[in-house]
Simulated assay, not measured.
Amino acid sequence: MLKCQKVFVLNVSIVSVYSLVTIDGVIGGSVLLPCASNKHEHNLQDIDVLWRYNASMNVFTILKGKGSVEHQEPKYKNKTEIFPDKFLKGIFSIQLNNLVYTDAGEYDCYIVHSGEHVKVWLLINVYSQVTVDGVVGRSVFLPCASHINEYKLQDVNVHWRYNASMHVYDILKGKGSVEHQEPRFKNKTEIFPYEFVRGIFSLQLNKLEHTDAEEYECYIVQSGEHMNVQLLINGE
């Protein structure tokens, strides 16, 4: 006897409608991961949205306007909430409950029917602060280390920022990137890739100027750690 099985295939075509946001959470708490479409009117039966962790792990799926946990990763069981009353307004945010360290990382919201993509960095508040002194014209070491001391290179995503927003340096999948680096930091930064697998993502800043002083922040995406480095500049 020939048996026929019905297979559902979802064709995903994401165009370059992209936004990025960083969210902070605390151990044991809850956090809202935002995802909203630029379009404000949607037909419920057309709504297909995929929430994924680190690009592939299934967090939650919305198919034809209805939530589905059929292929949800076990670690997210009973941890996710959606808000169906917001769908027609183009809001597909999810709430993540009972946060643990391993919930930190990159979450992607793919709004399939409109071709939009929202990336959310979730940082679990593991925070430290240090003050470093530098001298005009010389170099200084800005420390950043994870409490996790063993990493796979392809999992390493770290973002160095100046005064919370200015791009200083990015480490993406274990490789340094200056694609979005602020021009003032061009040829002034050094990293130490051989230390990455040990959870050390420190940065060396060269040719110091008085204007280099202020706050530097190191965001370790995978572990959700955040280090604040206050740089003081001495000398004329």
Rank of each mutant, 00 (worst) to 15 (best):
F8D: 15
S16Y: 11
Y18W: 10
L20S: 15
V21G: 06
D24N: 15
D24A: 11
G29I: 00
V31I: 06
L33A: 09
S37D: 07
H40C: 04
N43I: 11
N43K: 12
D46E: 06
D46Q: 03
L50K: 08
W51E: 10
Y53Q: 10
Y53S: 09
M57P: 07
V59F: 06
F60M: 09
F60T: 02
T61E: 14
T61Q: 13
K64C: 09
Q72H: 01
K77H: 13
K77T: 14
N78V: 02
K79Q: 14
T80V: 15
D85R: 02
K86G: 02
K86C: 05
L88E: 08
K89S: 15
I94H: 03
N97T: 10
V100M: 04
G105M: 05
S114C: 09
K119S: 14
K119V: 14
V120Q: 00
L122N: 03
L123I: 14
L123C: 10
L123M: 14
N125W: 11
V126H: 15
Q129A: 14
T131R: 04
G134N: 03
V136G: 01
R138Y: 11
R138P: 10
S139V: 02
V140F: 04
F141S: 03
P143W: 12
C144K: 03
A145G: 08
S146K: 04
H147Y: 12
E150C: 08
Y151C: 01
D155S: 05
V158P: 11
Y162I: 08
S165W: 06
H167L: 03
V168E: 01
I171V: 10
G176Q: 00
S177M: 03
S177I: 07
E179A: 10
E182M: 00
T189N: 01
E190K: 09
F196T: 02
F196P: 00
R198H: 14
G199V: 06
G199P: 10
G199A: 05
F201Y: 07
L205K: 07
N206T: 13
D212H: 06
D212A: 03
D212S: 04
Y219Q: 06
Q222A: 08
S223D: 09
H226P: 13
N228G: 01
L232S: 15
L232G: 13
L232C: 12
E236T: 10
